[in-house]
């Protein structure tokens, strides 16, 4: 029972209130609020144009919301200076792009890609940086002898795993993922999902993952938020939302998935 109590008494790592982003008269997302607790994976689903990507980019600091609050570990992120915000982005936070090319330096070796965040936070010992990089390549199942190869020589799945290693090497507490399995073969997706599940479990990561793939959130997310036209229409336990959807749109979304 102690474990249960721990999980319940802990303070939220990320607390979002009334987040709104407009593009002129058009709504990107409106009135979004949620709490994310340490070790929790929150899935955000919705069709394209539902505002899930806008929400993610506001959360991750790529765009500034028009209204609302984002508290990370109790601190008001929107009040941060540019320097503090960027420090957060290379330390406690990480962002996994859908397209690994957006999240990797394609002209830099795999080891350099993984080591960059370490060097960004002050690591100045080559051997130690290399050891960390080797360790992380192993954790994402990339052979150690590929450490000096450039990502352009890697397959799509390997590039995505490299991007994940590059992001996790500094031990972030919060990871944003934008369709991390999109554009990958089904078999490669499965392997990546398994890897992500293990990392989330072993490192106690908190994750916000945006996807339109309900199978991905079922396997990865503890909780689910369903978005439509910029607003959250339903949220709850992932399996509850998928198996007993309450909102008309969620029911439509769930019933539209082809059964395999």
């Amino acid at each position: 029972m102690t474990l249960m109590q721990n999980a319940i008494t802990a303070a939220p790592l990320l607390s979002v209130q009334g987040l709104t982003k407009r593009y002129g008269a058009r709504i990107g997302c409106a009135g979004v609020g949620f709490d994310l607790y340490p070790g929790e994976v929150l899935g955000i689903v919705g069709e394209s144009g539902s505002g899930k990507s806008t929400l993610l980019s506001c959360l991750a600091g790529h765009q500034r919301p028009d209204e609302g609050r984002i508290l990370f570990d109790g601190a008001d992120v929107l009040a941060f200076s540019e320097a503090e915000r960027r420090r957060l982005l290379r330390g406690d936070w990480a962002y996994v792009h859908q397209n690994p090319r957006d999240g990797l330096r394609m002209g830099v070796s795999a080891g350099g890609n993984v080591g960059e965040r370490l060097m960004a936070v002050g690591a100045r010992n080559y051997a130690a940086i290399r050891e960390s990089a080797t360790d992380w390549l192993g954790r994402v199942e990339i052979a150690a002898d590929r450490i000096d190869d450039r990502p352009s020589a890697f397959s799509g799945g390997m590039q995505q795993r490299l991007q994940i290693a590059r992001n996790l090497v500094t031990g972030p507490r919060l990871v944003f993922m934008d369709e991390p399995t999109g554009g990958l073969d089904v078999s490669v997706q499965a392997r990546l999902l398994d890897l992500l599940r293990g990392l989330v479990r072993d490192l106690g990561l908190s994750v916000v993952i945006v996807t339109h793939d309900l199978a991905v959130v079922r396997l990865l997310a503890d909780r689910l938020m369903v978005m439509k036209s910029g607003r959250v229409v339903e949220c709850g336990l992932t399996d509850q939302v998928l198996d007993d959807p309450q909102h008309a749109y969620t029911q439509l979304l769930v019933s539209s998935v082809l059964q395999v």
């Binding site: 029972m1 474990l3 249960m4 999980a7 319940i8 607790y37 929790e40 503890d222 909780r223 709850g236 336990l237 509850q240």
Partner: peptide, 12 residues
């Protein structure tokens, strides 16, 4: 809350 149910499912 969802996280309470998750904790329940994990341990109890």
């Amino acid at each position: 809350e969802p996280r309470e149910i998750l904790a329940l499912r994990r341990a109890v």
